[in-house]
């Protein structure tokens, strides 16, 4: 239901994504890992055209978009089927928690305000922030802001939620609440593509882990296999660094 074919991204002469092919099934939770600067963020950003891919094809649900011939309409349609959770939360500073979540329903889906806010209230309940509806982002902790960020993504009803290192800006004391919420979403069979350095999240939640290096998918598999029995030397090398206790 999500399919990438030959996705490429170049900045000038630098190739950041070197032909990514990827199929993600409905309800699947895919975690992307890999060294810094290998194009993980770029991959997610290309899927909803926050960056314009240089070449390749993106299918989300029944919509297929070819990077080489896109219209504004295609890009909007693609963005409306995907949702993004940002490393630095990126909440709308001029809107309270409730309206951050309701914004998409009001502006993009053109729901009546009251209905949108009602739905946003339900989401706040689900993310455990019902009492923070009126709070502006500046007065929320990092963990709370990121949960609102996830709530905003949930409100879109998107076919897939893209997470770019959702926990790496958080103080250690707040880190647990965000993976907790993501696990809850996973149990609800929300399709997710997650870039993270949290190997424990990958191990506990992912259906499939993808190791990316140099803009390519080097190796992929269920976490139990990939973590305990990596085949490629680059994967082994990377895992040795991030899982010091698990020397392979």
């Amino acid at each position: 239901m999500i399919q990438l074919k030959g996705l490429r991204k170049e900045y000038g002469k630098q190739t950041v994504l070197d032909g990514i092919d990827l199929d993600i099934a409905k309800g699947e939770i895919v975690v992307v890992i890999g060294p810094s600067g290998t194009g993980k963020s770029t991959l997610l950003r290309c899927i909803n055209f926050l960056e314009t891919p240089t070449a390749g094809e993106i299918t989300v649900g029944d919509l297929t978009v070819d990077a080489c011939s896109t219209s504004r309409k295609d890009i909007l349609a693609l963005r409306r089927r995907t949702a993004f959770v940002f490393q630095n939360y990126a909440l709308f500073a001029n809107k309270n928690a409730l309206d951050n979540i309701a914004e998409r329903l009001i502006v993009v889906d053109r729901w009546p305000k009251e209905k949108a806010r009602q739905k946003a209230r339900e989401i706040l309940q689900r993310i455990g922030l019902a009492d923070k509806a009126e709070a502006y982002p500046a007065s929320l902790s990092g963990g709370q802001q990121q949960r609102v960020g996830i709530g905003r993504a949930m409100a879109t009803g998107a076919e897939v939620i893209l997470f770019d290192e959702p926990t790496s800006s958080l103080d250690p004391e707040w880190v647990e609440e965000v993976p907790g919420l993501m696990k809850q979403l996973a149990r609800e069979h929300q399709t997710m593509l997650v870039v993270t350095h949290e190997m424990s999240f990958a191990r506990d939640v992912a259906d499939r882990v993808i190791f990316v290096d140099g803009g390519r998918i080097v190796e992929q598999g269920p976490p139990s296999e990939l973590f305990s029995n990596p085949r490629d030397p680059r994967t082994r090398d990377f895992l040795r660094k991030v899982l010091p206790d698990q020397t392979a």
Binding site: L50, F86, A90, F92, E103, R104, R152, T156
Partner: peptide, 22 residues
């Protein structure tokens, strides 16, 4: 903050909507 612009685009807002509302 530029990331708010990206967030607005990511939920499917048009440029005009993102200017006016955010």
């Amino acid at each position: 903050d530029r990331s708010q612009t990206e967030a607005a685009l990511s939920i499917g807002m048009t440029n005009a909507q993102l200017m006016r509302r955010i």
